[in-house]
Computed example of a mutant assay.
Amino acid sequence: MHTLDVSNLHLEYGFKRVLWDTCLHCETGQVVGILGRNGGGKSCLMQVIYGGLRLKDQYVAIDGRVLLTRERRPEDMRYLLQQSFVLPGLSVKQVFDDFGVAFESFVEDFPDFVGTARKRMKTFSTGERRMIEVYAVLASDSKFCLLDEPFSFMMPLHVQKMKEVIRREKERKGIVITDHYFEDVIDISDELFILRSGKTWRVNGREDLELLGYIRNTDGIQDR
């Protein structure tokens, strides 16, 4: 089992506290969900964990080994950005080869993509490209996986299947996920937090989210 520990994160922009003594723990076999309002610091937290954003005083460690530089080894951690990051001229097979993932395993989960190994990424829809990127990051061989808005632009049927893949992959890694489709995050998370006023607060479901002002009443409408 591997552990990811994050603490002592402080980030301010002007008078706005984005992260304030923020902490997080994830381990093999867990999906840790992070919810929060748009602009509330979720992506900043992901970037700090991955090393794309370096703070003066921070603690990010895997198995007790502090990650002091911005370098993250793929075998330690993979990161799915909000934005599309795969070059449009690459073929689907090239993308999976780069991540050490078999194209055949992808089409077993998503048969609609049979026969697309040589197709270029630019020929797919936004949702299809997102599926390929998420699967490549998620199924790669790493101790931890950070997923920032993985379900964006996906059809509901594909979202449900990707959630099955996440549940399967968590058996061999720890996964930290954030998405504005909060119902899906609640559904697959073993531990759930809301990032509010720069701090992470553990929540136990919809009732806590209502109390913290993330959703309104009991109708599931997100307070954006």
Rank of each mutant, 00 (worst) to 15 (best):
D5N: 09
S197C: 10
H25E: 14
K56M: 09
E191G: 02
T28K: 13
E207L: 01
D187A: 04
L146E: 00
S43K: 01
L195Q: 08
V137W: 00
G198D: 09
P111G: 06
D97E: 12
V60N: 01
L211V: 02
A139Q: 03
K16G: 01
H2W: 09
R206A: 09
E164A: 15
T22A: 13
V95P: 14
L45F: 06
V137A: 00
V107G: 10
D184L: 00
V159G: 15
L212T: 00
S43E: 07
L9M: 06
E149Q: 07
T178L: 14
V114F: 05
I175W: 08
L192G: 06
E104Q: 12
E128R: 07
V107Q: 04
S142R: 00
L55F: 03
I175G: 15
V6A: 14
I166K: 13
R196P: 13
M155H: 13
S105F: 03
Q222R: 07
R73M: 15
E104Y: 02
F124K: 12
D187H: 02
K56N: 08
V32I: 11
Q222L: 09
V134D: 08
D76C: 11
L19N: 02
N204P: 12
Q83T: 04
G64P: 11
Q47C: 10
R167Q: 11
E171Q: 14
F85M: 11
G115M: 06
F106W: 11
G127T: 13
F124E: 14
K143C: 03
R196G: 07
G100D: 13
G51R: 09
K163C: 15
I62G: 00
D5L: 10
I221A: 10
R17P: 05
R224I: 12
I221K: 08
E128I: 11
M1Y: 11
G115Q: 12
R224A: 10
D63M: 05
N8M: 06
V86P: 06
L19D: 03
Q83C: 06
V66E: 09
H25Q: 11
V176L: 15
D98H: 05
S7T: 13
H180A: 12
